[in-house]
């Protein structure tokens, strides 16, 4: 997990000079995939359109859902609903998960109390909570936020906890020596010290949020991208399914990007420290 964060940070900031080149290679790859897609479906007809939609069918599905609407609303409404739920669930999860991780990392007593509960709950896949959530809270927003919370909560707790435990012992002792008041100790030592791992946790939490949201919407929803996917599946409408999938990909990428920008800002000291180490 640590190495992943190292890679992404140096990628987006540390090697600024190479970014344009990397970007152009990335765009070229996407272009090649699109050409292959066109070739396989429209030009040579190797893949029948019932199995996988052609670019034209996908485009018409996009126009369909953006204009007339599909599955109970137009694209903006679905995107807005999904995005809103992910952001709410994610924020709710990290607002509870990060402080709990800090507490567990800081106090052995708290860890001893909380860890057993955690060990029992952790192996349950977040998606397994969906039926219970729907039973309790119905098909509305509340059930989805609860499920997202469950899935995003765990990585943020674990990584924050590990981050606190990873702070160098002498650095903590230096803080004790300087006579830090408690609140300042948390905000100026524990949180920044654990922040590289905290951000790793947030990234995993965000991914988990999207996964669970789409799954929860597939099970039952009035609006949202999962709802679009579900209806399109029942209608045997491959173009629309692909539109839904691409929409999730773009949203997931965009939100990760926003988080990455916040991370690069907050961890400027760490980026440079890692670069200095080589």
């Amino acid at each position: 997990m640590k190495y992943e964060s190292v890679y992404i940070i140096t990628d987006s900031l540390g090697r600024r000079g190479r970014v344009p080149r990397r970007m152009s290679i990335g765009l070229a790859t996407i272009l090649i995939v699109c050409v292959l897609w066109l070739a396989m479906t429209t030009l040579f007809g190797i893949v029948p359109s019932g199995r996988f939609p052609s670019p034209a069918e996908t485009w018409s599905a996009l126009v369909h859902v953006s204009g007339r609407g599909y599955g109970g609303g137009d694209l903006t409404l679905h995107v807005y609903n999904s995005l809103r739920l992910v952001v709410m669930g994610f924020l709710f999860a990290i607002a509870t998960g990060v402080p709990l991780g800090l507490l567990m990392g800081w106090s052995r007593k708290a860890e001893a109390f909380i860890n057993p509960i955690f060990l029992i709950i952790r192996p349950i896949p977040p998606l397994a909570w969906i039926p219970l959530a729907i039973l309790w809270l119905g098909l509305g927003d509340a059930a989805k936020i609860m499920v997202i919370w469950f899935s995003a909560f765990v990585p943020s707790v674990i990584n924050t906890f590990a981050g606190v435990r990873n702070i160098d012992r002498p650095v903590l002792e230096a803080a004790y020596m300087l006579g830090m008041p408690k609140f300042r100790f948390v905000t100026e030592v524990l949180v920044p010290g654990a922040s590289p791992m905290i951000f790793t946790g947030l990234r995993l939490s965000l991914q988990a949020s999207w996964t669970t949201l789409v799954a929860a919407e597939l099970v039952g929803a009035f609006y949202g991208i999962g709802r679009v996917l579900n209806v399109a599946q029942q209608d045997l409408y491959p173009g629309m399914i692909l539109v839904g999938m691409i929409a999730v990909a773009i949203l997931g990428w965009g939100t990760t990007r926003v988080l990455g920008m916040a991370e690069a800002r907050a961890l400027r000291w760490n980026t440079a420290a890692l670069a200095a180490k080589g």
Partner: peptide, 29 residues
């Protein structure tokens, strides 16, 4: 406590604080 200041072998500076802020922290406390 700050009446017994320690200098550590591994420096133990706060890597997220500038030189100035590292020195300032004890005085703020």
């Amino acid at each position: 406590g700050p009446d017994r200041a320690v200098v550590f072998q591994q420096f133990a500076l706060f890597p997220w604080k500038s030189v100035y802020d590292n020195i300032d922290l004890g005085l703020r406390n």
